[in-house]
Computed example of a mutant assay.
Amino acid sequence: MSGLRLVIFDVDGTLVDSQAHIAAAMTAAFAAEGLAPPPLPAMLSVVGLSLPVALARLAPDLPEEGRARMVERYRGQYFTRRTETASPLYPGARAAIEALAAQDDTLLGIATGKSGRGLDAILAAHGLARHFVTRQHADLHPSKPHPAMVLAALDETGVAPENAVMIGDTEFDIAMGRAACVRTLGVRWGYHPAERLAAADALIEDFAALPGALDRLWGRA
C-alpha cells in the first residue's frame, strides 16, 4: 500500500461553514450559566479543539462542574440546530472531494474536533460519507493539536506519513499534522487568519487551488 496517498480533512471551517450553529449553541451555553457570551471572533478562535478544551479556554474561571453543564447545553443546542438545517458546504468542497475520491491512488480521511454523532450527521446530510475511509473525531482521541487523530488515520490506511497531507483552517490542524510528521495545507476561508497558519507547508485561497497544491506538496508539479 506504499503507493497510496492520504488526504485528511478537518470539517468545521474547512469543509462546512458551521459558524452560525456554533455561535448560537455557544451563546445558549453561556446564557445557561448566567454569563455573557464571548464575541464571535473568540468563539471561532477555539473551533477545532474538542469542546471541553474549547470551553475551558473561553471560560477559564468557571468551575469544572459549570463547564460540564455548558458542554451538555452546547451539545443539545447544536444538535437541535443541525437537525433543523445542516451547515452548508463551502463552495467547491463537494467537487474537490469527489475528484480526489475518484483517483485510484488517493484515500480520503477526516480529523475533526466534532463528536462522532456530529460528524456522521454532517456527512450524511451532504451525502459524503462513502468518500472517507478513515474518520477520526473527538470521541476517540485527545483534542487537537495532539497528533493522535492523524496517527490513527495513517495506521488505518497503511499510508506512510510522507504520503499524507492534513488540510485545515486552524493552527490546531496545522500543529496536529506537523506533530504527526505529515505535510500540512492551510485554507484561508475558515476561522483562523492567515498569520495563524504560518507554520503550514502551503496555503490556498479556494478549493479550485487544491489539486495543484497537493501535486506541489507531493512533488508532482
Rank of each mutant, 00 (worst) to 15 (best):
L119R: 09
S2F: 09
T184M: 09
L49V: 02
C181V: 13
A20R: 10
G186P: 13
R178F: 13
A86G: 13
V7K: 03
P147K: 03
A96M: 12
D155N: 13
F9E: 01
M176N: 02
I8M: 09
T112C: 10
A221I: 15
A194M: 03
A180E: 06
K144Y: 08
H131S: 10
V71F: 04
R183P: 05
P142V: 07
Y90V: 13
D17C: 06
A199I: 13
G212V: 12
T170R: 00
R183F: 14
F30D: 01
M149N: 04
N163L: 09
L55P: 03
D17W: 15
P193L: 14
D105P: 11
P38M: 01
S18P: 05
R75F: 07
R130T: 04
D173G: 07
P193I: 06
L51R: 05
E64D: 09
M43I: 14
H21T: 09
A213C: 03
D155K: 15
H21Q: 09
A208C: 03
E72F: 05
P147D: 03
A32M: 05
R67N: 14
A160Y: 08
R117L: 13
V150P: 00
S143Y: 03
R130P: 03
A28R: 13
F172H: 11
R57M: 05
G118D: 03
G66C: 04
F79P: 00
R220H: 08
P60D: 02
H192M: 08
E64I: 10
A179D: 08
D104W: 04
I22G: 02
V71K: 01
Y191G: 00
G66V: 11
S2V: 14
L119E: 08
A148R: 03
N163V: 11
L55D: 00
D10M: 14
A199M: 08
A111E: 09
I22V: 11
T14W: 08
P39R: 10
Q77W: 06
I167H: 01
I167C: 01
Q19A: 12
S115G: 05
G212L: 15
A202I: 12
L89C: 14
G158F: 07
E171A: 00
D139S: 14
L107R: 06
I122G: 01
D105T: 13
D201L: 10
L55S: 00
A124Q: 04
S45C: 15
E64A: 15
A68W: 15
H126A: 12
A129N: 11
E195L: 15
R57L: 08
A124K: 05
P161Y: 10
E65S: 10
G186S: 08
Q103W: 10
A125E: 04
D12Q: 12
L51F: 08
V187F: 00
I174F: 07
T170H: 02
G92C: 07
A99H: 06
F79Y: 11
A152S: 15
H126E: 06
L51G: 02
G34D: 04
S115H: 04
L107K: 01
A124W: 03
P60Y: 08
P60H: 05
G219F: 15
N163P: 13
G76M: 12
A199P: 05
L119K: 11
D61G: 10
F9W: 05
